[in-house]
Design a protein around this nucleic acid. Structure first.
Length: 302
DNA sequence: TTCCAGGGGTAGA
DNA sequence: TCTACCCATGGA
């Protein structure tokens, strides 16, 4: 077994722990968060080669040099340059090293009467290495408790994910091809994805067969958000909540994901525990414009 | 037993 | 665009 160390440069300010932990994704396998070591780990199957590696990310502690994310790669064989490049891209995507939050920070500094829990360098919400994985995670958060979401993702990974170095307990998130090959009945009866089974199987099949290129269709920074929203809603199983969540994943924060958590928070904090209409709830965060998802996300409970 | 969860599709208006 | 109604599963 080899351990290869990489250092990925980060923008300033940057808060690694906030990036890893502000979003619930870090609690979904194959992510694990080690609080004592402040380390985010993930078993990862590299798309370029099919090799499965383990990644361990933590904050670099430079002596006078530029800050970085320290990446340890556990691998059975040395990495090719292509594999190393893929890992660096995955790290940059996961903790959003290429996203500019300066306007959001300025708004936070000027926002009187708001108590947003954002530290300098915060605001980054963890993503998966690929959009496909983010979409499956998101579909597993609809109409279910958070404990249920964790169970679904655990079973999906345990049954269909590829193990790292023969270790059953360390499996990568399943590929579209593995989910497609399993078929909707396995998803329904063994992984117990319920009514999500058909949606997830359809999406995985479309990606595996090359009928849908998620990166090409949805990760185009020049595409207007309204068009992105339309494309996301064409995915079966993606409704208003999931689409807004995925727009957040894509770095577009102008739509609120209205779910029971948001309803509960807004009712308690702004309406004295009384019910409010969706329009009234949206109006609370409307002043934040294209940053309203983050304003809600980091809004202090009371 | 019943309700409902970090909702969404479909049909019908 | 809005509203009923149905959809699987599991915890409370």
């Amino acid at each position: 077994m080899l351990t290869i160390s990489l250092a990925e440069p980060v923008p300033t300010p940057f808060d690694f722990e906030a990036a890893a932990r502000s979003h619930g994704w870090s609690a979904l396998v194959p992510f694990t968060w080690d609080a004592a070591a402040a380390t985010l780990s993930r078993v990862q199957r590299l798309q370029s080669s099919g090799r499965v590696v383990r990644l361990h990310l933590r904050e670099g502690h430079p002596n006078g040099s530029a800050p970085f994310v320290a990446v340890e790669v556990e691998t059975v064989e040395p990495l090719t340059p292509g594999e190393e490049a893929e890992i660096r891209r995955a790290v940059r995507r996961m903790v959003r090293l290429d996203e500019d939050f300066s306007e959001f920070y300025e708004l936070c500094a000027q926002a009187e009467g708001w108590t947003l829990r954002v530290q300098p360098g915060g605001g980054r919400l963890l993503r998966c290495p690929t959009l496909f994985e983010d979409i499956i995670y998101t579909l597993c958060t609809t109409n279910i408790t958070w404990a249920g979401t964790k169970r679904l993702v655990e079973r999906l990974t345990a049954l269909l994910g590829e193990p790292f170095s023969g270790r059953d307990e360390w499996r990568a998130f399943p590929t579209p091809a593995a989910i497609a090959a399993a078929g909707p009945e396995v998803l329904r009866q063994e992984i117990r994805l319920g009514y999500r089974s058909g949606y997830i199987w359809e999406l995985a099949s479309a990606v595996a067969e090359g009928r849908l290129d998620l990166h090409e269709a949805l990760e185009d920074p020049t595409l207007p958000t309204a068009d992105l929203m339309r494309r996301l809603r064409q995915i079966k199983g993606v409704g208003p909540y999931a689409a807004a969540t995925l727009l957040m994943i894509l770095g577009r924060y102008e739509h609120l994901a209205v779910d029971t958590e948001l309803v509960s928070h807004v009712s308690k904090k702004y309406f004295g525990g009384q019910p409010a209409s969706e329009a009234e709830m949206r109006a609370v965060y409307a002043p934040w414009g294209r940053w309203q998802y983050l304003a809600y996300w980091f809004d202090a409970p009371d």
